[in-house]
Amino acid sequence: MAQTVVVTSGKGGVGKTTTSAAFASGLAQRGYRTVVIDFDVGLRNLDLVMGCERRVVYDFINVIHGEARLQQALIRDKMLENLYILPTSQTRDKDALTTEGVARVMEELQTQFDYIVCDSPAGIESGALRALYHADAAIVVTNPEVSSVRDSDRILGILAARSKRAEEGAEPIREHLLLTRYAPKRVQGGEMLSLDDVQELLRIPLLGVIPESEIILQASNQGIPAIHMQGSDVALAYEDVVARFLGEERPLRFVQPEKTGFFKRLFGG
């Protein structure tokens, strides 16, 4: 049976799609059969971040409407052979995802994969609800910023109340905080909420911290998930996230302002 992980946030533009791509790639790198699904109907960003936009023929919506089989819509990742992408439609509206249709596809994916990663749209309405409904675990992507923290808190309320697990009275969804676009220097200057602040406010276990980095743009320019940007802060931070998700202990990195140069960064300090 696959584990279903939703990457969610409430607020848009905080790094859900970036995280979904990196996280799914990280799981696949470790040998897990992984599929990452784009639930952001109408926008369709995930295939761009994964760099497979030109290979999209059929999508999630086609499968739900019986216009294509699941196997026809799944796109194999160009870098990792056990990673697949299920893209969404750019043209249809967000109501094209039906509750029963999503359930049917999820059930079929369950038998083929170890991990199903769901890239949620922003908001707290139907699209976001469908993305989180089947989750066993949630990665709540949060920026150190007032509206993002507030929206994360609202999503936590929804995870606890509106998911399948909640409806069935099963064990609650495992919640993980992922703080992204973190700028330690600005935190030190008192201009940005600190990791401690956000943890104190949201009170869920921390999965990791992804620093603000220009590498993300370089990665998305090329359609390469950030975890493949070898040796970069963000790649290492995302590797740590995957390791912690799988139960390994990893000390936090990139949460202090850098005082020193490249070698110090490489060898710790």
Partner: peptide, 23 residues
């Protein structure tokens, strides 16, 4: 500018307390 992070935190404490009790 120096103190805006603590302003943000104080605001959030109030906002979250209010919204958590709203439901």
């Amino acid at each position: 500018r120096k103190k805006t992070a603590s302003v943000a935190k104080d605001r959030l404490k109030l906002i979250l307390a209010h919204e958590r009790s709203a439901d």
